[in-house]
Every structure is written in structure tokens, then in C-alpha cells.
Amino acid sequence: MPRAKIWGFIAVFLSVFLLAFVIYAIFIGKNDHAIPVDLNAIGVMTYYSMAAPLLLISLFVLGIGFWIGWTIITIKVVPPMPEIVEKNDYSKIKAAVLCAVTLAAALMLVYGFYLRAYWALAIPAAVISLVVLGAVFWVGIAIITTRSTLPKGKEES
């Protein structure tokens, strides 16, 4: 079997295992006694070392969302561009919704972080994990399910 396919299988099995683990640990098994859901019970240093990076990444992503919305709202159509004058454009309304949603999410996140709420950490952690592991899984599947397009002699063993 080509080495790339072996890596493909490893990626798929590993990502499926970790995805299942993340979903179970965050959403299903959170009430097990083994998992410290009460974040007030852990030390200040321990809490901030976990929560601060997650908060920063989440605020960065939400900040990009807000910036996109704000930029769309404040775009000035440079005259003269007669081609687009007659077209209907609802993007500013959608951009306002994006700004409101990202701003509300960011405020809730910061407030949850301040209160040491479980979901303020769990949801960003779950989203980041699912995006990265989902990408690993998808690439792995793509590698497993296709054949090399190189001539036979040039394929790796």
C-alpha cells in the first residue's frame, strides 16, 4: 500500500476517535464526576492558562466577522461605476446582522469567561477541534478513496 494511503487511514481513524472523544467529553460526559465542570474549583493559574488562549482565538475569529460586517456597511460605491447602479443590494442589511451577532457572541464569551462558565470554554474548544479534526478527516478520506494519476512506474511503493 502506498505510504500516503497509510497516512490517510491513520488520519481518518485518529480524527474519528478524537472527534468522538471531544463530542463525548464536552457534550455528553460533562456530568461525569471525573470531569471538572465546575471551573471555580480549579486554581486561577490553571484556569487562565486554559481559558486565555481559547478566549483570544475566539475573539480573533469573531473580530474578523465583525470587521467584515463593518467594512461592508461602510463601503462607499466609488462613482462612476454605472454597471451596478441598477442592481438591488441587500448586503448591508446582512452585514449589520453579522456585526450584531458577532458583537453579541463576543460579549457573551467575555462575560462567560469572567464568570468561569463551562460553556464559555466548551463551545469555542469544540468548534476549533471540530474544524481542525474535520479537515484532517476529510483530507484522509480523500487520500484513501482515490488512485494516483502518475504513470505506473512513477508511483511510490
Binding site: I68, I72, I75, V77, V78, M81, E83, I84, K87, N88, D89, Y90, S91, K94, A95
Partner: peptide
Amino acid sequence: DLTMDTTFWGKL
């Protein structure tokens, strides 16, 4: 490009 994008998705 933004001037010519007429949809929210296009601008985003």
C-alpha cells in the same frame, strides 16, 4: 471588486 460585488457573500 467590492464596488462590483452585489451580494453579501461576494463582498464577504
